[in-house]
Design a protein around this nucleic acid. Structure first.
Lengths: 242, 242
DNA sequence: CCCTCTCCGTGCGATACTGTACCAAGGGGA
DNA sequence: TCCCCTTGGTACAGTATCGCACGGAGAGGG
């Protein structure tokens, strides 16, 4: 089975699925920017300075609690955007958003973006539908966190990441994964071995390669796929590219 | 410490915090209806027929997965509404929404509601801000499911329910709670004993009474409160009531 | 009053995952 | 080449929760 959103391209799918008229409203204000790993797009409860439409990078949204409790609640790449709260008409969020995989993205100033959203209902409606998909992703994360075993959550996460990255090699450490999933680093090691034992992935130092997507999806036992299907339903057919 | 949204009244706070002009747009279309326990407002992937603004009832949003996996991802009472997806411009959702505590609510036909949202930006913006709060609630649920112990999740849930119910007595069974939290029924029994042992609640057959809110909040270790604070920030001061 | 049904309390072994700790293997820089 | 730092593998005891199962207590109807 192929990646959920097709192969990543050098454009952002949320932008390219806009009608030309709407896209031309945004284009003058988009700045193609390189985002390095670990750079933070939003700090909890701080004003959101800009909104990012990734093309090559991947962003991660993390809920933070008391005493170092943190867990990833969602992630987005070339199919999505940061700054869900801005689309919702609010200028802060309790989430932390940071770059998990370095790459390019189109940035737009929050104030400019908000103004355009207010002036053009169709534009707002478009991004609002995306936020709907993102919300579904979060609900699936909640389900997964509550009911799935470590390997299942691991499989889900790898699939989501694989969808948003070119090729089959995902560059990450067990340590990083453990923070995202909110589990022990050693637990991730054991989990990857399990998936590797079934021939679904191959693990090298700092890299996990996806060998068998379909197998991973089976392994995820239904915790993967719902949000992706909804996205395809709503944004499936790109309007004329370029 | 008092309930997060103040005492429940015989009105819906989301409606009463609208400006009179906007409220008058909705009022002709609102039908005060009695909702019984267990009645379903939305089935997964089925068209959403109406949107409900509870006054006395409480609704529960549940994510459903493979083989009986289900878990509550959010809940709403007189401070909120059902049909988040409708506000987002989509007419289905993968969630199941049902009535958890019987009571009255204002129902409005989805098509009528959607039409009003499209025609009046301010109206849409108002409800969109609420959905933002609901999303935060879901992210906190994801955090809680992933990192909190049973008692903590239990404390969080009781607080959220307490906020939306008049008085301090919550009518529910361990069985029900176990389904909501996605844990064993027997686990809930043990958990309630633990909270009861600390003097935070009192459990009778089919009823849990909240004795010490502040204690419960401490027990929840930060998994309660974020979404509630955001709601108060955005909807804190009611506009002129009536 | 008894029967029945719902709800709650408890026990027991099994399992998933934790916290901690230590070591080994890659890999880049001096 | 040596060193050091990052990353990954493994172990072990401890804890949270599970699945299952059984018994008992409340409560309402006949």
């Amino acid at each position: 089975m192929a990646k959920a959103f097709g192969q990543p391209t050098d454009s952002n799918r949320l932008l390219s699925s806009l009608s030309p008229a709407l896209r031309s409203l945004l284009e003058p204000h988009l700045h193609l920017t390189r985002f390095e790993r670990q750079s933070v797009l939003q700090y909890p409860q701080e004003t959101i300075g800009c909104v990012v439409f990734p093309v090559g990078c991947i962003g991660s949204m993390v809920a933070v609690g008391n005493d170092d409790r943190r867990i990833e609640v969602g992630l987005f790449g070339f199919e999505g955007m940061s700054g869900a709260s801005v689309v919702m008409g609010v200028d802060t969020s309790p989430l932390e958003v940071f770059i998990q995989v370095a790459g390019d993205g189109y940035a737009i100033d929050t104030d400019v973006f908000r103004k355009l959203l207010r002036q053009h209902d169709e534009l707002a409606a478009h991004f609002t539908r995306y936020i709907h998909c993102l919300n579904i992703q979060t609900t699936q994360t909640a389900l997964s966190n509550g009911q799935a075993k470590l390997e299942e959550r691991l499989a889900r996460w790898l699939l989501m990441c694989h969808d948003r990255v070119p090729g089959d090699r995902i560059s990450l450490t067990h340590e990083f994964l453990s923070v995202m999933l909110g589990v022990r680093r050693a637990g991730v090691t054991v989990g990857t071995h399990l998936l590797e034992g079934k021939g679904l992935i191959r693990a090298e130092r700092g890299i996990i390669s996806v060998l068998d997507r379909e197998g991973l999806e089976k392994e995820a036992r239904g915790s993967y796929g719902v949000a992706e299907k909804e996205y395809l339903r709503l944004f499936g057919k790109d309007r004329i590219e370029r």
